[in-house]
Write a protein that binds this DNA or RNA. Structure first.
Lengths: 159, 159
DNA sequence: GACCGATAGTTACAACTGCAACTATTATAG
DNA sequence: CTATAATAGTTGCAGTTGTAACTATCGGTC
């Protein structure tokens, strides 16, 4: 048994908790602005963002690229179709597979959101040195890989 | 206008997105385990965790400590009362104010969850050096402060 | 000591999310 | 060529979460 087994846990030193609070703060700020200013939800923005970079993807591929599940993508896509920011075709080879592209209107919001997003990020990271940004980048990559590897938690394995 | 205004944005380099994906991965892993193994939701666990450290807090104070809103706390508390993991009194001085403490059963789950939580965190951070952990700690603190300071985003102010 | 604004906590309702079932299409086996 | 299994995407339902309205109590003022 680890020696700290009976030491009470301080939530404010617990990394998963701190990550969660930080993400909530950041996401709430961004989501509010996207919604109010562009009539976009975060899932919609993500779909837009990947399709701007790689036009013609299918919904399933968008899901992979955005770490969203297929239901979330489906709903985001249908929202974007409703607001005419996306056009959808279907692949000749496989008519189940959708082919998604930004419409002109989609490109237009995209190019309004991008500087906005960059500016938020720039401000968030404003007083980090180049070195610290590098550390942040490395840590995020590392932790993401680790979290994926750990996966849906082994309940109570003796270590 | 910044010179990158018309460069498309790569989602996988965008810090708010990466934070969100990382937090989702970590939270899903933890939430699943808590639910399955202890019958606890994450909000309930947070309430338990702060009350274990500071017994007798009111719901409002728990909300502050956990970065949850008062409705979420109210629901978590009522869940914990239902499962008899919490006992609630009301302050003599102010009978609106609740006085919350873990019951014996509450202490018991708490002490089963704590090692579990620590172990997950330990594994998540397993191959970080002491230095890297220090950087992570500093970065999380810094970014949290920054995000709070930026607040509900100024939509389109010229900078 | 009755009124009025503020505060603690709960409830009601709407929006969002996730899982599972469903439809449509394609690929594979016999 | 038909039957079966697999895949892309959608829809329905249930549980969760957030916002706003509500109840109860308090503190201060006249």
């Amino acid at each position: 048994m680890p020696k700290d087994a009976r030491r009470r846990l301080r939530l404010d030193e617990f990394v998963p908790y701190r990550l969660s609070v930080l993400t909530n703060t950041v996401s709430a700020a961004i989501a509010g602005a996207y919604a109010e200013r562009f009539g976009l939800s975060i899932p919609e923005w993500r779909v837009l963002a990947v399709l701007a970079l790689e036009p013609g993807l299918s919904a399933a591929t968008v899901a992979e690229r955005t770490a969203m599940d297929k239901v979330a993508v489906s709903r985001a896509v249908s929202g974007l179709l409703r607001t005419r920011r996306l056009v959808r075709g279907f692949a000749n080879a496989d008519r189940r597979r959708s082919v998604l592209r930004l419409s002109a209107a989609g490109e237009q919001v995209y190019w309004r959101v991008v500087p906005f997003a960059r500016r938020y990020e720039r401000r968030l990271l404003a007083d980090l040195t180049r070195t610290e940004r590098g550390q942040l980048d490395a840590l995020l990559a590392h932790l993401q890989a680790r979290a994926l590897a750990l996966g849906p938690v082994i309940p109570d394995e003796t270590e």
